[in-house]
Amino acid sequence: MSVHVLENTTDRAIAFSSRRRASLKERSARLFATCAQGAWLLLAATPVIVVICALKG
C-alpha cells in the first residue's frame, strides 16, 4: 500500500512540474509577444512623431 502512495505522490509531483514548465513557457511567449507589439507600435509612431516635431520646429 505504501508503494502505491509513493507512486501516486511521484506522479502528482511530475504532473505539477510539467504544468509549471508549461506555464513558464506560456508566460515567456506572452512577454515576447507584448514586446513585439510594443516594437511595432513604436515603429508605427516614429513617422508621426517626426512630422509633429518638424511642424513645431
Rank of each mutant, 00 (worst) to 15 (best):
S17Y: 00
T34L: 11
R12A: 14
L55A: 11
A39F: 06
V51L: 11
C35P: 04
M1T: 09
Q37L: 13
D11L: 13
R20I: 02
D11H: 10
Q37C: 08
R21F: 01
T10N: 04
R12P: 08
F16K: 12
A39D: 14
W40E: 12
R20G: 01
A29N: 12
L55I: 08
D11P: 04
K56D: 08
S2C: 09
C35H: 07
V3E: 15
C53K: 14
T34K: 12
G57Q: 07
L6C: 12
R27V: 02
S2V: 09
G57P: 02
A39C: 04
A36C: 05
K56V: 13
W40V: 14
N8T: 15
A22W: 06
A22Y: 00
F16S: 06
A54P: 02
A13M: 11
R27F: 07
K56R: 09
K25I: 03
G38K: 02
S18E: 04
S18T: 11
C53S: 12
W40T: 06
I52H: 00
A33T: 06
S18Q: 13
Q37V: 09
S23H: 01
T34D: 02
S28C: 03
L55S: 07
A22G: 08
K25N: 12
L31R: 09
K25L: 11
S23M: 07
A36W: 00
R21C: 00
P47S: 05
E26F: 00
T9Y: 03
A13F: 01
C53D: 02
L6I: 13
S28E: 13
L24S: 12
L41D: 10
W40G: 09
T10M: 15
R27Q: 15
V5N: 09
P47Y: 05
A13V: 11
A54K: 04
G38N: 05
V48W: 02
V51I: 14
D11R: 11
G38E: 11
A39S: 07
V48D: 00
R30M: 03
L41H: 11
E7I: 09
A45M: 10
A29V: 09
I52K: 06
N8R: 14
V50L: 08
P47W: 01
E7F: 15
T46A: 13
R19E: 14
V51C: 02
S2R: 10
K56Q: 00
T46Q: 06
P47C: 03
G57D: 05
Q37N: 14
I52V: 10
S17H: 05
H4E: 15
V3G: 10
A39H: 05
C53R: 12
V50D: 10
R12E: 09
A13S: 11
T10A: 15
W40P: 02
K25F: 00
V5Q: 00
A45P: 01
Q37H: 08
I52W: 12
A44I: 03
L42R: 03
R20V: 08
S2Y: 11
S18N: 07
